[in-house]
Structures are given as C-alpha cells and as structure tokens.
Design a protein around this nucleic acid. Structure first.
Lengths: 167, 167
DNA sequence: GTAAAGAAGACTAAAGCAGTCCGGTTTGCG
DNA sequence: CGCAAACCGGACTGCTTTAGTCTTCTTTAC
C-alpha cells in the first residue's frame, strides 16, 4: 500500500495540535485528551520526536513538550524521518548493495526519481498548514478535490493549505 | 520508511524485462534467469499480475506470459495497485471510518493532498521508461541528481527517463 | 517532602510479508 | 496416445515489523 505507519500518522496529528499553540507547553496527557490518541502512545511518540529533535521537553511538575522550530519550518517529511528513518520507496533507492539484482537493474534509476518526487511532495506540507486547517471551518472530505493537487508543484506555492483554507 | 514491498519491487523489474520485448512470450523460468529473481517468486508474482490484468498467460508447452498493454501505458502505480491494493499513504486518506480521531482531524485533508501527489509521481513513470533505461548505457547512481526531478512535474513531460537517458 | 511530569527501556501480542511447496490443468509434440 | 513443459491456484510456514503496554527511575514545582 505504500503505507505510512499508524504511529507516524498519530505523531503528525500530535504535532499539528501543538502547532496550534506553538509557544505553550503541552503535557502528554493533555495532548492525549485533545487528540484521542491513547496516553501511553502519546508518551512514546513524544519521546521519539524529542530524540529526532522535533520537540523539546521540560521535566518536572508543570512540564511538557514544545515544538523546537516554528510550525512553518517543520514538514511532514521531517516527521517521517524522525520516526521511520530516511524516506526510501525501495531499499536500493537509498543505499547501494544488498540487492541481488543491482547491476543492470532497470528499475533502479527510475525508482530514485520517484523517491525524490515523493520526498518533495512530503516536504511541501508543514505543521503550520495543518494547524491552519484545524482552525478553519471544518471541510467535508469530498471538497478536497484532485484538481487542487497541482498547487504542490507550483514553485512558489509553499503553503498548500492556504489554498485549501480558502472557500 | 514509506516503503514499498520487496515483491512489488521485483514485479517492476520483471515487467521491465518483459517490456524490452513486448511481443514475445516469456516463460517464468526464463525471466527468473534474466532478472536474478528466485523462480518460485517469479511464478507467484506473475500469477498476481495476471489477476490484476497486467499480463496475459498462455498455457501449455511453450506457453508463457505477455504484457496485456503496451509498455508505455503501464505505470508504476498500476503495478503497485495490482500487488498491494489502492495507494494510500494513510488509511484515512482513502476510506472513511475506522479512525478514532476522524472528526476534527487536522492531518486528514493535507494527507489526502499528499496522497494524490504521491500517486501522481508514480503515474509518471511507465514500463517503457524502464525498458529504455535498460537498453541505454549503464549509468552510475550518482548521476541521477536531484535537480532532474522537477521534470516529473512539467505538464508535458510524460517520458521521464527520456531525460534520464540523455547524457 | 510530595506530587506531577518526563525518560528509558523491556516486554508481549498481533499483523503483514516473503518465500516455498503441493497437486492440478492445459497444451505441444513425438 | 502419452509424456513433458508450462501455467493455475491455493495452502502453509517462518520471519520481521509494528503497535501497544508496563515498570521503574529522574527531575522539578510548590
């Protein structure tokens, strides 16, 4: 399915919730309540995100987590890399060796290009975009039409959901 | 890792090998020899690809498999869909329900856009492209640079590796 | 000093994936 | 007519990855 792990999905939701109030300190339990993600899972994810440098922690009573960077500077690709390692559609797209085919493999070069394209799509969406779509009036899923997609590819378009938010 | 299954990878290699001689009939064993993929695996994959409508089989002695469509009309996305089902970066990007968060989920709409973008990248590469890169002089991996990627997004550019092939 | 909060890691259960093997059917050819 | 080559269809097993939980320890505010 070319699937992302469920945990990565949750992590994105958590970070989006934090991005709504970037300055505040967010306790793990509080985030669990706000996002409906199970508390132990939230704790586990935040630890990993901290290891990946995406959030900073404050220990002790009234402690919590805070985003390390401004929401606009954190992309979905960053989240995936923090939790699942480098983005690699196939193994051979990233590291050489280990593949029996390797030499004269027709798929290799094209897969590298695909990998780069996928990465670019993931770099195009930031936490700020997600937080914005949280604050906006709820949209019905069907309203996100396929025709809106090419905005990703316009060189100047960084804030994807700015487009989504309108109308 | 956003990984594709290894089997999907192999299937792409097999189809690329067949695309080099689209008219011929290819026996499973012969393809195994040409691609270094284990014979039972080849057989299994071709069966699945047939179920997915990508190849046609001829039974009996001197039988084999043939591509159902011209190589230029088969994309990597087709291969993935035949083996792994619909392309879905997250579950909620495709089917509704089953997600505890669901309502008021900030990540949902953005993930749908990402999913569409990823799909588009996968649709952009065909078996014909791969077969071409097989016939061309072998390129060293490093030569496929990131700067070549945007070709994917140019509206008129369908044959990605036509660009890769040159120089 | 006590309570609230994060840190760290071990552990279990479940799911998906890769790979193999089997018996069956169709077809070509001597 | 019978054998061999090739595909057909599915069952089955072992492995890896993932999700999720639990426990114990450390830090800090009041």
């Amino acid at each position: 399915m070319l699937k992302l792990g469920k945990l990565t999905d949750y992590a994105t939701v958590l970070l989006a919730a934090m991005a709504a109030e970037p300055e505040r300190l967010h306790a793990a339990l509080e985030l669990s309540g706000r996002t409906s993600v199970a508390a132990p899972t939230v704790a586990k994810l935040l630890k990993q995100l901290q290891k990946g440098g995406l959030v900073q922690s404050t220990r002790g009573a009234h402690g919590g987590y805070r985003l390390s960077r401004a929401p606009a500077l954190v992309t979905v690709a960053d989240v995936i890399r923090a939790l699942e390692g480098p983005i690699a559609v196939t193994d051979c797209a990233v590291h050489d060796g280990g593949c029996a085919i390797e030499v004269g493999c027709a798929a290799r070069a094209p897969f590298r290009l695909i990998n780069a394209a996928v990465t670019q799509a993931l770099e195009a969406v930031t936490l700020a975009d997600m937080a914005a779509s949280l604050n906006a009036a709820p949209r019905r899923p069907a309203e996100v039409s396929m025709t809106e997609v090419p905005i990703f590819f316009h060189p100047a378009a960084r804030q994807v959901s700015a487009h989504v938010r309108r109308r």
